[in-house]
């Protein structure tokens, strides 16, 4: 069991580091502030830590990648991108954070970023002439358009429906999945389902295993 700080703690720490770098201190060649560099693992330490990952660690990373994967960025690409960013210094690993948690948080952040980019990516629309389409394209406003937002919402809706459909035979599990998506706390979910802590933990395990089995490489439409 990994007993170091939770992902949310790491996220806060990395965000604070990012905030420091954004206020304009001198940057090194890798785009990392001096403050970040002082409290971060060196590149050699990162390489050593990743080389030292156990088979179990790699399995954990594969599963985390699948949870954060989306059609815009498949699981394998997500993990690969996290590794590259760790190596090229565009993401720093705080000294007290182990490599698995660092890479997990990196994947989460990359997935969020990719999703935002996909929403903002302008669609190229052919300009049609009387003789047919030409090579000229309209390049719409790069701000997230209504169509992109609708497409994104549709995808999220399909994913949500697919995931909930896995638990049609288990109302408590379905409530937990739905409640988690809605941001309910564990305590609220236990109260909602009437499960005690042990039964709730067991149900969560069932939920995760069923999702893993159905979408081993991450959800795809």
């Amino acid at each position: 069991m990994r007993t170091s700080k939770g992902v949310s703690d790491i996220r806060r720490h990395m965000s604070a580091q990012g905030a420091l770098s954004r206020i304009g201190e001198r940057k090194g060649t890798e785009g990392v502030s001096l403050q970040e560099a002082a409290s971060a693992k060196s590149r050699a330490e990162i390489v050593e830590a990743i080389r030292g990952l156990s088979p179990t660690d790699w399995v954990r990373l594969k599963k985390v990648a699948a949870y954060y994967a989306r059609p815009a960025i498949p699981a394998q690409d997500l993990l690969q991108e996290a590794l590259v960013r760790a190596l090229d210094g565009s993401r720093v690993c705080p000294v007290h954070v182990d490599a698995v948690r660092f890479l997990a948080e990196a994947m989460r952040s990359i997935a969020d970023g990719e999703q935002e980019k996909a929403e903002r990516r302008p669609a190229l629309v052919p300009i049609e002439e009387s003789g047919g389409a030409t090579e000229a394209m309209n390049c719409p406003d790069p701000a997230p358009g209504v169509e992109a937002r609708i497409a994104q919402a549709e995808q999220e809706s399909r994913m949500r429906a697919d995931l909930l459909a896995l638990f049609e035979d288990d109302p408590a599990a379905k409530d937990i999945v739905e409640g988690t998506i809605e941001g309910m706390t564990a305590e609220e979910l236990r109260e909602l389902t009437g499960l005690d802590r042990t039964a709730y933990d067991s149900k969560r395990k069932l939920i995760r295993r069923r999702i893993d089995k159905r979408y081993p490489e991450g959800w795809q439409p």
Partner: peptide, 15 residues
């Protein structure tokens, strides 16, 4: 995003 919360939850369990 809402589904990100589920992913966070699953990831935390695995870790």
């Amino acid at each position: 995003r809402p589904l990100g919360r589920l992913a966070d939850s699953l990831a935390e369990d695995i870790l």
